[in-house]
Simulated scan of single mutants.
Amino acid sequence: MERFRTSIRMILFLSLLLLAMAGILAACEENDDGGSGAAYQVEPAASLAVEAAGGESPTARDKVKIGFSMDTLLEERWLKDRELFKAAVEALGAEVDIMAANGDDALQIAQAETLISRGIDLLVIVPHNAEAMASIVQKAHLAGIKVLAYDRLVRNANVDMYVSFDNEQVGELQAKAITKLVPRGKYVYIGGADTDNNAHLLKKGVFNVLQPLIDSGDITIVYDQWTKNWEPANALENIQAALEANDNDIDAVIAANDATADAVIEALAAQGLAGKVPVAGQDADLKAAQRIVEGTQTLTVYKPIQSLAQAAAELAVKLATDGAVTANRTISNGKARVPSLLLAPIAVDRTSIDETVIADGFHSREDVYQNVK
């Protein structure tokens, strides 16, 4: 009889084990290639909240490990992102392994593969080339690692989550401010890198505003060119070509970021036009803030990256531990509708710089006004 009872207990145990394994396999099949939309709640655009997460660590380690693959650390803005994201992740009790490729696609792919091989729990990517990094998303998923796109969307891949600012709105803010100052005239557009999805979103936002004025004949685009790799030297060549082609007769310039705006203002200064031709940028770099109070740059678009880094860190840890996250948008990347959390950018000019960039502690007042007597 005892042998019979033991056999019954063994059969029950095996049955429960098989049921548990079936549940695990079903869950794996449901999340295969990085997450269907069912794993996320898509909220109205006004909601920016990130929900609290439950969830256990996917490994037996004491700390969740996040891999952060960055395009570059050669610009002021990205150095801030690195430090803010690192601090935010560590404050949540996790750790982060950071690698930067400085604009080299092959190197970024190799670095991301290295991060995956180190046993990270989640990969965060700032892609240099939005298309090239699609292969890394697939490799991460094959290793059971989810992927969060940070600030720039990876194209044609099943990205699990995207966190950024509303880049189309950034372009709209630039164009609205400049057209208010220059409702008619000859415009130059200096774009970002053609390989960066954000550059396309920025341009779309700009032309959302400009196109009706172009159609009416009030505005003429006399030069429109991408800036390879976002490099200021390439932006300088672009604006010099625009000035030469138009005999210096231009009325406004919209630049894709503050580094390209710096090159624009350098070229304008060489022709005695700095401060006479309105120039828009974005990122609120220190040099741009200084140019704004000095009067050579008209505006920048401030994206509070402290908020971006904090939101990304929270999302990364929650995704790594299978916790619940909340999106406020879904964005097509050419292959999937990616659950996205988009934060609001802020237009900043000389009248508002003190109450935004300086009040937030993004730059000190002393640094911003150091060249103004």
Rank of each mutant, 00 (worst) to 15 (best):
residue 231 E to F: 11
residue 347 A to Q: 12
residue 327 A to N: 01
residue 98 I to H: 06
residue 326 T to H: 11
residue 354 D to E: 15
residue 269 A to V: 03
residue 350 R to C: 03
residue 54 G to V: 00
residue 309 A to Y: 01
residue 185 G to H: 03
residue 344 A to S: 15
residue 17 L to T: 11
residue 313 A to L: 03
residue 254 I to R: 08
residue 5 R to Q: 10
residue 208 N to K: 13
residue 232 P to D: 01
residue 223 Y to R: 04
residue 126 V to M: 09
residue 185 G to M: 00
residue 151 D to F: 00
residue 299 L to Y: 05
residue 152 R to D: 13
residue 162 Y to V: 04
residue 248 N to Q: 11
residue 128 H to F: 13
residue 342 L to V: 13
residue 368 V to I: 05
residue 352 S to L: 02
residue 198 N to F: 07
residue 145 I to L: 02
residue 292 I to A: 06
residue 327 A to V: 03
residue 93 G to P: 01
residue 165 F to P: 12
residue 131 E to S: 14
residue 238 N to K: 07
residue 263 A to E: 10
residue 329 R to K: 15
residue 167 N to C: 04
residue 264 V to G: 03
residue 226 W to P: 15
residue 206 V to W: 06
residue 273 L to M: 08
residue 59 T to F: 00
residue 295 G to L: 12
residue 304 P to H: 05
residue 312 A to G: 14
residue 201 L to I: 08
residue 9 R to P: 08
residue 265 I to V: 15
residue 372 V to R: 11
residue 64 V to E: 02
residue 275 G to V: 04
residue 177 A to T: 09
residue 336 A to F: 05
residue 194 D to E: 14
residue 353 I to M: 02
residue 266 E to N: 11
residue 233 A to K: 07
residue 142 L to Y: 00
residue 123 L to G: 12
residue 189 Y to C: 06
residue 250 I to M: 08
residue 217 G to S: 10
residue 172 E to D: 10
residue 35 G to E: 05
residue 127 P to Q: 05
residue 212 P to E: 05
residue 361 G to F: 06
residue 94 A to D: 10
